[in-house]
Structures are given as C-alpha cells and as structure tokens.
C-alpha cells in the first residue's frame, strides 16, 4: 500500500457464505439466465417474424405436431418442481441428507424426459430442411433440449460432489440452492416453448 492507512473496522467475523442475492453464485446464475432468456426471447421473436408472412401456420400441407409426447413431457417436467423445491429448502437448512437424496432423484428424473423428448422430435411432422416453419420448430425444440442436457449435467456433477467431503462446505449448499433455481428456469421456459411448438400451430391453422 503506497498510502499510509488507518484501520477502520474488521471483517474477520463476517460469514463465508450467504444465499440468494448475497452470494456471488446467484449473480452468476442470474447473469446466464438473462443471457439464455434473451436467446429464447429472440428465438420467439424470430418464430413470430416467420409466422407473420404465412397464410396458415403451419404452412400447407403440413399438419401441426402431435400432442402426446410433448404434453406428457410438460406434465412430468412441471412435477419435477416438487423434489426440486425440497432440495432448495433443504440446502438452505444445510440438511445434507435430504439434499443428497433429492439430488439423486433429480439426476435420474431427466432420463425419462430425454426419452419423451426423442418422441417429441418424431412428432413434429416436419423436417428442419422442409421450410422455415420446420427450421424454427426444430430450433425451438433443440435449443430447449440443449438447455435440459446442460442442466442435467450440472446436477449430476453436483450430486457426485455432494457425496464427497466437499459436500460439507457451506458454499456447496449455496451452489445446490442456485442449481435448483436454475432448474426452475429450465421448466418455466419450456412452458412457453411448448405453447409455441404445439399450440400456436393449432390455433392458427
């Protein structure tokens, strides 16, 4: 320090962790949620831009996507919020056992989701090469799938981590809580994507 200093308070008693906006992790996660949210928002805008030029949606002679797989997927992903909320609350109580159990559940639950997602691609009734409608439908579904896979990867790694001795560190509970918050973003964004992929083409045919 090149200036003489005057001691004016001590920080030693501050905690080393905090949840929510107090933590750095929260800001990082929110930052990336905004980035991805923007990406989705622009994708939605592109969807309507393309839609705007068409007489019917989907354009003739395509049929709207079949509903079954997507709808089951939607119900299931909304249900995952139950274990997710349990984990989040447990993390904030530093309840390691519940966190561990919940994380195992949350690492396994996406597996049936992936299977359903595979059926969803098959039920679009259009190929990405067919026309711009097909391209945007595939883009929506694929973008959300990437979203799903990355968060699933995160969760799996976190689960493994929580079973090691690092799981006892306070900041790992903060990470767990933020990971749960991110999952909410994953399923909430899906609800809009779901409407755009499956229902808007039904309303506008």
């Amino acid at each position: 320090m090149s200036l003489p200093v005057r001691f004016d308070g001590d920080l030693a008693d501050l905690p080393t962790h905090g949840f929510g906006p107090r933590s750095l992790t929260w800001w990082g996660i929110v930052g990336f949620m905004v980035v991805e949210g923007m990406f989705f928002a622009l994708l939605f805008a592109a969807y309507f831009f393309i839609l705007d030029k068409e007489q019917t949606w989907p354009p003739q002679p395509y049929a709207p996507p079949a509903l079954l797989a997507g709808t089951v997927f939607t119900m299931l992903i909304v249900l995952t919020e139950i274990p997710n909320a349990v984990i989040k609350r447990a993390a904030e109580r530093f309840d390691l056992r519940t966190v561990r159990k919940g994380l195992v559940v949350m690492s396994l639950l996406p597996l049936p989701l992936f299977v359903l997602r595979g059926f969803e691609f098959a039920s679009l009734n259009v190929l990405w090469t067919d026309n711009a409608y097909g391209s945007i439908q595939w883009a929506l579904l694929l973008t959300h799938t990437i979203h799903l896979i990355t968060d699933w990867g995160d969760t799996a790694v976190l689960t493994a981590l929580m079973f090691t001795e690092h799981g006892k560190e306070a900041n790992r509970f903060v990470d767990t809580s933020e990971n749960a918050a991110y999952w909410r973003f994953v399923w909430a964004s899906w609800l809009i994507v779901y409407l755009l992929i499956y229902w808007v083409p039904r309303w506008l045919t």
Binding site: L3, R6, G9, L11
Partner: peptide
C-alpha cells in the same frame, strides 16, 4: 493523507 481500510 491516510486511507481508511478494513482488516480481517
């Protein structure tokens, strides 16, 4: 002349 700082 002096810069106030915190320690700890």
């Amino acid at each position: 002349d002096v810069l106030p700082v915190m320690t700890g």
